[in-house]
Structures are given as C-alpha cells and as structure tokens.
C-alpha cells in the first residue's frame, strides 16, 4: 500500500507539472494550451487499452483453468479500464471542444471508444446480474473475450477511417513534449499495475 501511494504522489506531481509547465505549440487558431490535455489523455487511453487486454487474457485463462484468481484479475482490470476509459473520453471531449469546435463530433475514434466502454459496462452489469457465482464467472469470462472485439476497432478507427483524431490539426510535437508524455505514460502505467495488484489481492 505504501508503494502504491508513493507511485500516486509521483504520478500526480508529474501530471500537475505537465499541465502547468508542459510544452505546447504556438498556434493562434485556438487556445493552444489545450495541447497540455495530451499529457493526461494519452496515459489514460493507453491504460484503458491495456486494462481491457488484461481482461481478455485473464478471461481466456479462467475459461481454460477455472482458477478463481484469474477471474478476479479480469474483473478488477475491467473496472480500472472503465475508470480510465471514462477519463480518456471526457478529456478527449474537452480537447475536441477547443480544437474541433464541439464536444462530440461522432468521430470514428470517439464513437468506437464509447462503444468499447459501453461493452465493458455491460460486462460488469451482466456479471452482477447472475446470482450463481460459478455461472456468473463463466458467462462474464465469455463476454470478456467477445467484448474485446471493440478494442482493435477503437484503436484502428483513427487510422482506417477518415478521422479527426490525430489528423486535425496536424501539428508536430517537440522532443521535450515526447519525453514528458513518455514519463507520464510510464508513471501512470506503474500506478495502474499497483492499483490492479491491490484490487485483485
């Protein structure tokens, strides 16, 4: 627990530093300070993708081995994935409001990520709605595997379709911003792993 709180302090301190002093490009079309949202949005989105991938892996493992521990990890990872996914979508909406002109644009990435999030909320709802514990674990593991189809769609939607995401505005980032972004991703990922360990204990 002590290790988790140390990691959280580092993670939050870095997030605050990035928001207050992080690099942003000089663009006059809109308030370019909104670029600082990237330092928070990207780690949350990657944590969400990683969390749902873990749910897939441990759901398969549960179906193969029927080990209670695997089911617990799959479930806890889905809960964390939903929390981080909510953060990724809302921070993305705040960015979109400034850069694209409105909070919600039915952009392929926005829509596909919302669908993924709804699929995993359905996973939790389904799990809680079945009173028989063994049955609930097996059915939710099957759902945990099938819900994963939304993740590659969400990830590839910005590349495969004509998407606003990452393409508008096409603005190269500085080396300094990549370093700060990488640090945020690494510390956020460390917090995610520590939280998952505490959750699924």
């Amino acid at each position: 627990m002590k290790k988790l709180f140390m990691l959280i302090i580092v993670n939050v301190a870095l997030a605050v530093y990035s928001v207050l002093f992080g690099w942003y490009p000089q663009i006059s079309l809109f308030d370019a300070t909104c670029y600082r949202i990237l330092y928070l949005h990207v780690p949350m989105a990657w944590n969400m993708y990683f969390a749902f991938t873990l749910t897939l892996i441990f759901s398969i493992a549960y179906l193969l081995k029927e080990n209670e521990k695997y089911d617990k990890i799959a479930f806890c990872s889905a809960v964390l994935g939903i929390l981080y996914g909510f953060g990724a979508i809302t921070s993305g909406m705040l960015w979109a409001n400034e850069v694209w002109g409105s909070y919600w644009n039915w952009d392929p990435r926005q829509t596909a990520t919302l669908m993924a999030l709804l699929a995993y909320i359905g996973y939790i709802a389904l799990r809680e709605s079945i009173p028989d514990v063994e049955r609930s674990r097996t059915i939710s593991a099957v759902f945990g595997v099938s819900a994963y189809v939304t993740i590659p769609i969400s990830y590839l939607s910005a590349v495969a379709f004509r998407s606003l995401h990452e393409q508008l505005p096409h603005q190269p980032l500085s080396f300094e911003s990549y370093v700060l972004l990488a640090l945020n991703v690494v510390t956020s990922f460390a917090v995610f792993i520590a939280l998952l360990k505490e959750f699924s204990r």
């Binding site: 627990m1 988790l4 709180f5 959280i8 993670n11 939050v12 997030a15 605050v16 928001v19 308030d31 300070t33 909104c34 600082r36 949202i37 928070l40 949005h41 949350m44 809960v79 964390l80 929390l83 981080y84 909510f86 953060g87 809302t90 921070s91 705040l94 960015w95 409001n97 400034e98 917090v191 939280l195 505490e198 959750f199 204990r201």
Partner: peptide, 30 residues
C-alpha cells in the same frame, strides 16, 4: 490557459483517488 486542461487534471486525479479508495477499502476489509 484553457479551462478544459484544469478539468482534465481534476478528472485524472479523481480517477486515481476513486481507484485507490476502492483498493484501500478492500485491503481494510481483508
């Protein structure tokens, strides 16, 4: 600075706080 940056930071911290609160409750429960 764009206000949405502060809101994003608040959401980010809130997510970590909620998750660690659940983790803390679980560890106390056990």
């Amino acid at each position: 600075m764009y206000w949405g940056v502060y809101v994003s930071l608040a959401i980010y911290i809130a997510i970590i706080a909620i998750a660690s609160f659940i983790a803390l409750r679980r560890s106390k429960h056990e």
